[in-house]
């Protein structure tokens, strides 16, 4: 590489100006090992463009330079420049100006999840008696640089922060809640939105730090809330497992009846439409369902 050009179409918008967002096209000489960040810096320093973007460390540590490149949320400092790039602000977040997005909604969500270690026992001295095994998950979550790229990739996240907390906030909550030294029960604060994660792994795929967001934050936190029976999803999940234990199979009508109980009647009209197409049938239980009980008993032995 080295020779040639990079053509970047960059999103330009200032809400204070009151005009429609637009895209400006810049031609940038391609440099060796050029990153998206280098292209942005060139546009401002060499081409004299007025362009707002954030960056600080340039080495995937500060989490400031998240942008969307050709439809994919990335860290500008960690993404090779493509020959043709459309560079936009991270989606799912309010725009401050050009490529700068507002993180304050996220900050408010994190604040409500008690992002600190509430110690079970007072700190004694260094080193603390911790094992690698016990710290494996919190340690993965500590790699988070709060760039909000997972939030930009998340289909369930809503800017208002009222429902689902979003993957990044759950990583911050999990970092403390899953630490063996922590004693604070965050489950009621978590259960309000936690269940809206649709398990799509878009957060894992997008995370520039390679954090297992779903496996190490969302699922363990969700497991804790379900164990405590918090929220409708807990009833749903327990009903789901009960059906597996009883019949081996789970079908929509049986699950709906168990989860929503009388509430299921409210949906009878829609159920009927589906039933007419054969879509609302109860599958017959497997004939060896008693094997499930035997397996479960043995799994619980040790």
């Amino acid at each position: 590489m080295g020779a040639g050009q990079v053509v970047a179409r960059i999103f330009s918008y200032d809400p204070a100006e009151g005009r429609e967002p637009r895209y400006e096209t810049y031609e940038i000489p391609r440099a060796r090992e050029m990153r998206v960040l280098d292209a942005l810096i060139y546009v401002v320093d060499q081409l004299g463009a007025s362009l707002a973007f954030r960056w600080f460390c340039g080495v995937r540590r500060c989490g400031a330079c998240g942008v969307q490149v050709n439809g994919r949320p990335v860290l500008a400092c960690w993404e090779p420049a493509a020959e043709q790039m459309v560079i936009e602000p991270l989606p799912n977040l309010p725009i401050v100006r050009d490529l700068v997005v507002d993180h304050s909604g996220y900050d408010r969500v994190v604040d409500r999840l008690f992002p600190y270690l509430d110690r079970r026992d007072p700190y004694q001295s260094f080193p603390e008696p911790l094992t690698h095994g016990a710290m494996r998950i919190p340690h993965d979550l500590m790699q988070c640089v709060q760039c909000l790229i997972c939030v930009a990739a998340c289909p369930s996240w809503r800017i208002d922060g009222e429902g689902f907390q979003g993957p990044a906030a759950l990583v911050q909550a999990g970092r403390f809640a899953l630490d063996p030294r922590d004693a604070l029960d965050r489950s009621s604060a978590l259960a309000r939105g936690l269940y809206d994660c649709c398990s799509c792994y878009a957060c894992n795929d997008a995370c520039p730090m390679g954090i297992d967001v779903l496996g190490h934050a969302v699922e363990p936190l969700r497991a804790a809330c379900i164990k405590r029976g918090l929220g409708e999803e807990a009833r749903h999940s327990h009903a789901f497992l009960d059906l597996i234990r009883e019949a081996g199979v789970v079908t929509a009508p049986s699950l709906l009846l168990k989860t929503r109980r009388a509430g299921a009647l409210a949906r009878a009209g829609e159920g009927l439409k589906l039933a007419r197409k054969g879509k609302f049938s109860l599958a017959s239980p497997i004939s060896t369902a008693e094997e499930i009980r035997k397996v479960q008993e043995r799994m619980e032995e040790r």
Binding site: E219, A223, I226, S237
Partner: peptide, 8 residues
């Protein structure tokens, strides 16, 4: 299953 009863 993986969050409610992972071992089963």
């Amino acid at each position: 299953g993986w969050v409610t009863d992972p071992s089963l």
